[in-house]
Each structure stands twice: as structure tokens, then as C-alpha cells.
């Protein structure tokens, strides 16, 4: 494993926290296929930690089981073997500290933006008036202040993602799981959203596990980038600390020599796996 420790002092309160926010210990996930005989091991012996307040990205070739890791972390999926620890406690059932931003559309089409944002508070039994006030505040923060009355089909893809972000963050989760949240957006909207995400994150540092297939996105956002092997039996094959100074602007940071050096180094590790993944997807 290819680990570098960054010397740059991070403003994060991470140093003090010995217990990681999220830790996967030897997690293996095997799925039985529809026929019932053959089984498919999506991820195998994965060890992965996200420190308290740390922003970790996971990159890997397509179809390598990245989403499986997030589902396991959220408690939506029980691993075949291995354990998940949340702030040191073994995870049973749903992860109460996790917020999850899905790759696919996750807003309820029959609720307005505001009603979607506050649905989690509703589940918790927060009184309607208070929930609405907090929802309005969050809509403001993601730049949708004037659009709370819109239904999802009346919003653009970027607006829906903002609403989904507010829906996740209003619950004040300690761990945020993000599954290629911006992959469906065009490049300009995407960089705007990435900067906004960094703003919100730096104001109130949470642990973030961010999954992407875009290496540039991973480097520009993260404290640490983890590279996964091609599936089946995906596992981490490299880990890189990103010691670029913060605050960062995602479009500017991409032009720095340090960024280019990191990109080269990580890409070198990734390339072989991406090719493997590509060949496999051709054979399927």
C-alpha cells in the first residue's frame, strides 16, 4: 500500500479524535445471483476508515462495487462478513449518524422541494412550524430559497441535487455518504456544486465518504483519496493524502503543479485497474 502522510497542518479537528467516524473492518459482500447457484463477491476484505471530520474520496473503475461500500456504511446492506464501526460502536441495523446522498433521483416526486427537505425532520417528529423554518433556512443555504414550492419535475437537475443535499444535511448527520452525487450534472454546474459542498463542509466539519469515478473531483475535494481495484472482489489498492491547502476552489486547484503531480501519481496506480475493469465490462 502506497501511503503518504501529509505534513501540511490541517485546520480540521481531526487530529484530536482517535476514534474514526466510520471504520470498515475486513468487510466482504457476496451476492447470490438470481439463479441461486453462482455467487458474486462485490467487495472483499475491505479495510477503510474515515476520521472524524475527514473528507475521504473513493475512486475506482466502473462497476467495482463502490456503491456497495456506501450501502454497507449506511446500514442498508449487511456485509457477508466483517464489521462496520461507527464512532467505535459496531453497527447494527441502520446507521443513525449517516446521511446518504444517492446517485439516482431520490426526491419524492409528490412533495415540493421544501416538503422534501423537511421529510427527515418529520420522521423525527419535529413540529411542523419548526421544521418549515429550518427547511427554509437550508433551502436558502443551497441557493433554493425562492423555489421551495416547486415539485421535483419543475426543477432542473442541479436544483434537484441541491434539494437532495439540503435534505441530507438538515438532519445534521455526523457522517455523510455521497455516491457520485454530481455525476449527472454538466461540468460547470458540477464545479459550482463542488465548491458549495466544500463551503458547507468547511463551516461544520463532518466525516465524508465521497464516491466518484472522477479522479480530478476526488483530488480537488478530499483530504485523502482511496483507489479501489477492479471487481469482482474489490479492495483498496492505494491510499493518498491530499495536502493541498484549504480553502480550495475546485476549478483553480486543478491548475496547481501539486495537483498535477498527485493526479499523475494516483492515475498511475489506477490505470491498470481501469483497463482491467474495461476488459471485464467488454466480456460481460
Amino acid at each position: 500500500m502506497n501511503t503518504q502522510t501529509s505534513g501540511a497542518a490541517r485546520a480540521a479537528p481531526r487530529a484530536g479524535a482517535a476514534v474514526p467516524g466510520l471504520a470498515l473492518d475486513n468487510v466482504t459482500c457476496t451476492f447470490r445471483s438470481a439463479a441461486g447457484k453462482a455467487s458474486y463477491t462485490a467487495v472483499k476484505d475491505v479495510n477503510l476508515t474515515v476520521g472524524d471530520g475527514e473528507f475521504v474520496s473513493v475512486v475506482g473503475p466502473t462497476g467495482c462495487g463502490k456503491s456497495t461500500l456506501l450501502n454497507v456504511s449506511a446500514g442498508l446492506l449487511e456485509p457477508s462478513s466483517g464489521t462496520v464501526r461507527v464512532f467505535g460502536e459496531p453497527l447494527v441495523g441502520m446507521n443513525p449518524h449517516a446521511g446518504y446522498m444517492f446517485q439516482a433521483e431520490s426526491l419524492m416526486p409528490w412533495r415540493t422541494a421544501l416538503d422534501n427537505v423537511i421529510v427527515g425532520l418529520e420522521f423525527r417528529g419535529v413540529p411542523r412550524a419548526e421544521a418549515t423554518a429550518r427547511g427554509q433556512d437550508w433551502l436558502q443555504r443551497v441557493g433554493l430559497g425562492a423555489h421551495g414550492h416547486r415539485y421535483p419535475h419543475q426543477m432542473s437537475g442541479g436544483m434537484r441535487k441541491r434539494a437532495a443535499l439540503a435534505q441530507t444535511l438538515i438532519m445534521n448527520p455526523k457522517i455523510i455518504l455521497m455516491d457520485e452525487p454530481f455525476s449527472a450534472l454538466d461540468i460547470q454546474t458540477r464545479q459550482l456544486m463542488e465548491n458549495e459542498l466544500l463551503d458547507i463542509w468547511s463551516a461544520d466539519r463532518k466525516s465524508v465518504l465521497f464516491i466518484t469515478h472522477d479522479l480530478e473531483e476526488a483530488i480537488s475535494l478530499s483530504d485523502r483519496v482511496i483507489v479501489l481495484s477492479a471487481g469482482p472482489g474489490t479492495h483498496p489498492i492505494g491510499e493518498f493524502s491530499i495536502d493541498l491547502p484549504r480553502p480550495r476552489d475546485v476549478s483553480e486547484v486543478r491548475l496547481t503543479p501539486e495537483f498535477v503531480r498527485l493526479h499523475d501519481e494516483i492515475w498511475h496506480t489506477m490505470k491498470e485497474e481501469v483497463l482491467k475493469g474495461y476488459v471485464q465490462s467488454q466480456q460481460k
Partner: peptide, 15 residues
């Protein structure tokens, strides 16, 4: 019903 919608509601704490 979209499985993502269900998963999302569960993560947000729905019983």
C-alpha cells in the same frame, strides 16, 4: 416504487 426512494426514506430515519 423506486428502491432509491425507499432507501432514502430509511436513511432519513423512517420507520
Amino acid at each position: 416504487v423506486s428502491p432509491v426512494l425507499l432507501a432514502n426514506a430509511r436513511v432519513l430515519g423512517a420507520n
